[in-house]
């Protein structure tokens, strides 16, 4: 095994994993707190990438300004999707809202992805976004990285760390956990679950917007680019578990990034999603065994103490 290549892949994997961690945190909150299967997260990623790239191309605004505008647009798009599309369906359908919300989310994705493709990829299938150029930074032992990767890792790392601390130790975190556990009880003590849901969609979409822009800066904006990221984000959120603390989601995100990156040692680079799919498939298959009456032995045998209630 080429140790130098492996080390280089570890560096790429950690950077990639940091983006998965941020997307996974957002997806986990949307799935488990707001209770939305937000397929349109893919459209948010693609949309923000195109917004930044097209703004830069057509207006000549500085890259950072384009980035901020794209992130803000993504955040507003996420919040509006919740208020205009999902909330009325959830109110009407109650416990049976999964399918209507999912179908609406598909509709939003279909319309946004098609609109982006129709309006922005006529001349070229991709639109580049130049954020910090492609300068290479040399590291010890012949390794290297890029300025963009350093920025990606720093920003995503800071967001992930901030989110973990916020969710674990702050009043905001307690409110979010309360809504996740029982929205009705949370509202009985003064929390407004609807407002929490909108906030989650807003901030998670802002993060998706950031990742979309960073991805565009690395590979250019392209129609359908959000699907792959959405898939990885869902895998991180599902594998982490429904009530996973933020730190676990971040660690799973980094692990998925590393596994995906290192899989290049064994399979073609354009098939690395297969590895993530493999992880997901094995995880879900084991989980699904119980549905066939196959129960796995408990990891921690339960001992009950009399009178302990």
């Amino acid at each position: 095994m080429d140790l130098n290549l492996t080390a280089q892949l570890v560096i790429s994997g950690i950077t990639q994993g940091a983006t998965f961690a941020v997307l996974g945190l957002g997806t986990s909150l949307i799935l488990n707190v707001a209770n939305r299967f937000h397929f349109a997260y893919a459209a948010t990623i693609t949309g923000s990438a195109f917004a930044a790239a097209v703004l830069q191309r057509d207006t000549g605004l500085p890259a950072v300004v384009c980035l901020v505008i794209a992130i803000a647009a993504a955040a507003v798009f996420g919040a509006l999707t919740e208020v205009v599309v999902y909330r009325p369906l959830a109110t009407r359908s109650g416990a049976n809202a999964t399918l209507p919300i999912f179908v609406s989310s598909l509709g939003v994705t279909l319309a946004v992805e098609a609109a982006l493709q129709y309006y922005f990829t006529r001349e070229s299938p991709t639109v580049p976004f130049n954020l910090v150029g492609d300068s290479v930074i040399a590291l010890p032992f012949g390794l290297h990285t890029t300025r963009l990767d350093v920025i990606t890792l720093t920003v995503c790392g800071a967001i992930a760390a901030g989110a973990v601390v916020l969710l674990r130790y702050s009043r905001v975190g307690r409110i979010v956990r309360a809504v996740r556990e029982n929205p009705m009880m949370a509202s009985a003590v003064g929390v407004r679950p609807q407002r929490v849901n909108v906030s989650i969609l807003f901030w998670a979409s802002a993060c998706a917007g950031l990742i979309g822009c960073l991805t565009a800066a690395k590979y250019s904006a392209a129609a359908g680019m959000g699907y792959g990221s959405l898939f990885s984000a869902f895998v991180v959120a599902f594998v982490s578990g429904q009530r996973a603390p933020g730190l676990r989601v971040v660690l799973v995100g980094v692990a998925v990034g590393l596994v995906q990156s290192l899989s290049v040692l064994f399979i073609p680079a354009n098939l690395t999603d297969l590895v993530v799919f493999g992880i997901l498939f094995v995880y879900l298959s084991v989980k699904g065994l119980s549905a066939y009456g196959i129960r796995l032995p408990a990891r921690h045998p339960v001992r009950l103490t009399a009178g302990r209630a």
Binding site: F39, G228, F231, F238, L271, L274, L280, G288
Partner: peptide
């Protein structure tokens, strides 16, 4: 293997198949 699980898992695995088959 996943049809006995909650619908979210089915959505996820079938979505993954759609993305992957096209990629492959």
């Amino acid at each position: 293997p996943i049809l006995g699980l909650a619908q979210e898992y089915v959505m996820l695995i079938t979505m993954a198949m759609s993305i992957l088959v096209s990629d492959i």
